[in-house]
Design a protein around this nucleic acid. Sequence first.
DNA 1: TCCCGTATTTGATCTTGATCAAAGCAAGAT
DNA 2: ATCTTGCTTTGATCAAGATCAAATACGGGA
Lengths: 248, 248
Amino acid sequence: MNTAPKTLSHSDCGDCPIRYRAVCSRCEPDELAVLDQLKTYKTYEAGQMICWAGDQLQFVGSVVDGVAALSQTMEDGRRQMVGLLLPSDFVGRPGRETAPFDVIAATDVTLCMFRKAPFEELINSTPSIATRLLEMTLDELDAAREWMLLLGRKTAREKIASFLAILARRETALSAGQTMGKVEFTLPLSREAMADYLGLTLETVSRQVSALKRAGLIELQGKRRIIIPDFASLLNETGDDTDGGMPA
Amino acid sequence: MNTAPKTLSHSDCGDCPIRYRAVCSRCEPDELAVLDQLKTYKTYEAGQMICWAGDQLQFVGSVVDGVAALSQTMEDGRRQMVGLLLPSDFVGRPGRETAPFDVIAATDVTLCMFRKAPFEELINSTPSIATRLLEMTLDELDAAREWMLLLGRKTAREKIASFLAILARRETALSAGQTMGKVEFTLPLSREAMADYLGLTLETVSRQVSALKRAGLIELQGKRRIIIPDFASLLNETGDDTDGGMPA
DNA sequence: TCCCGTATTTGATCTTGATCAAAGCAAGAT
DNA sequence: ATCTTGCTTTGATCAAGATCAAATACGGGA
């Protein structure tokens, strides 16, 4: 499927995000070449299950395009999304047999995948890759714990504001300190999926989005397009510490 | 402080849990000897801050005795515990400068600590250790995500039952499938700390504990000693899938 | 363009857990 | 033995968000 391996430079990283996130930051050309030979792409339609909790997982990889969701469902149907996978996020568990959670395509999704076994060999023989994966996993763990604060303690309005703020930051890749004015982006999730992510019902999501609109903190174009006229004032609604930490 | 390094065997692992969890499962005697030279112990009293979010962290290590809590606090005082550190759990972040969350001693705590810099060297030069740490971090991530389901979707009663079930399992180290009858253990947390962990108020915690007692699902000796006469019926109250997955 | 099915909004009411307020209890100090 | 003091339990009330139930808007196909 792939052409003969070639020596890759940092500037090649754009093609498949795993190179950038997991490898390229400390890459050796021959390691990239190995990865390049292993990779395959696969696409899923919005709503499709990518895998079920408990499935044998034969691959790892990363999201190239679209949005996937990790989620859990209780027998009676209550559902909690436990992670959002945006482009460049890693998918899968080196060193694990089975998937711990369901993975669902929230929009149409393209994954860049590697068979697990050779990828694990690469990890075991290349400390820099293992270290990079460890850092990525620690970042995910921190993000999960931030989300625990949101789920356990924030009000519905704060949840919505936090979610929109996070999406705005990620989708526009703005630098942190910057006092950014207007931001605009498209929601990748339905109201129901947002509810599953935020630990709310879809009705409450809808009401709070309307409330933020009425308060002039956001504007809507259709149901999915969000315009934030002043990012700073939306941040005030999140409940988060707004000053970016101590001045060192 | 430590005596001259000696060659260690697997049976030495009991001394300092990090050897077992992070290293020993794939250990080389000389690696253990290096760790042995680096380690120091430190104790904290119940209620003491071990570190604050944002602190420079000079060490990594593991809990030897007692219980520590990771938690976050909002400006208005709302607090969410985001992790419980029991004996053998790892503390700290290789590759990170600062602590992401507060760490508080929930009971008197003894830590076994290693200076971060030499520990990181060990990671970078020893793929098996990096891989082991990656696996431990993935376990923590899975646990955090399970907790997100609890925080986002479970009722107060289910939260309490789940928490007691998890503690019972960990404190008694029972094998999973076993139909265990009576289990007994001591709560390491006050009602307020439980509330912080479960996303509830302390009054709700107290009421639900009383309710489980009235229902005969648990018995109390004093405020902290819990007796679970029939573990299986407590599990019924957790909302969790009670059958342990598919039969392979 | 009209129709249909789905997603979303809005409204009315109910429930769970939060909040406010007192007691009760146990361990250590005087 | 009595008084603290801090934890815990219990009670009364309240409010945020869930639930139940319609209406409305939207996108795509005939």
